[in-house]
Amino acid sequence: MRPAIRTDNLTQGYGGNPIIENLTIEIDGGIVGLLGPNGAGKTTLLRTLATVLPPRSGQVQLFGKSLDGDADVRAARRHLGFLPQEFGYYPNFSLYEFVRYCLWLRQVPGRRAREAAMDAIEAVDLGDQAKTKMKALSGGMLRRAGIAQAVAGGVRLVLLDEPTVGLDPEQRLAFRELMRRVSAEATIVLSTHLVEDVAAICDRLHVIASGAFGFSGTPDELIGAAVDGARGDTELERGYISVLRDERVRA
C-alpha cells in the first residue's frame, strides 16, 4: 500500500527565508494533526502538500506518485480537497453554486457533482442554506462551507488548515463526527491550535517547530512526552509544550 503523502528532503520557504528544511515524512490513512506555534511552517507545509506552492527542493509524492509533471499534479488534485487558512470565496455565488464550482475545479463530472455538492453541504449541516449567497453566511457557516468544498466529491486526501476556527462547541462536535466519517475513505491532515480537537479526533500527531517535525506519534504518546513542571491545562497541552521547549533547547 502506497502512502497518501510522502516527502523526501522537502525544503520550502518564501524569498530568502527557508521555513521547512529537508523534511521527510510519510502519512497514510486516518486523521493526522499538525500542531505547532505560529510561523512554524504548518500552513506552508499544507499549501505545499496541496500543490499550491511548488517545492523549493526535494520531492513530494501523493498517492505514491511523484509530482514531476503537469499531468501527475492534475491527477493528484482530482483526489485532493484543501481548505486554506484564508478561505477565499465568491460572495455572490450561493453556497450550492460555490461548492459545485469547486467540484468543477476538481473536474468532478457534472452528473456526480450535483449530488456530491448537496451531500457535502448536508454533511456540514448547511442544507437549509444551500441557496443562500456566500456573502450572507456567518463566519462559522463560511468555515463549514469551506470544509464542505474540501470534503466534497469523494476525495482521497483532505488538507484542512485551521478548520475549527470560528466554530461554536456544538459545530466542533459535528465537525469531529464528520471527520471520523470522511476518514473512513480518505486521509485527513489538519492543522489546528485547539489541542482538544486534536485529542478528540486525531489518530496521529506531528508537532512542527522550526520547519521540522519535533514529535510524531499518537496523542497518548504526546501525553507521555510531558515533563514535570510543564505548563498547560490538559495532559496533551503539557506534552505539547514540553516537546516545543525541547525543540527550542535543541535549536
Binding site: 499549501r47 496541496a50 499550491v52 488534485r77 485532493l80 477565499g88 475545479l105 476538481r106 473536474q107
Partner: peptide, 14 residues
C-alpha cells in the same frame, strides 16, 4: 478581491 488564488492555483482544471 476574493482571495481565491489558492483555490484556482490548486485546481485540477487548467
Amino acid at each position: 478581491r476574493t482571495g481565491t488564488a489558492d483555490l484556482l492555483n490548486g485546481a485540477a482544471r487548467p
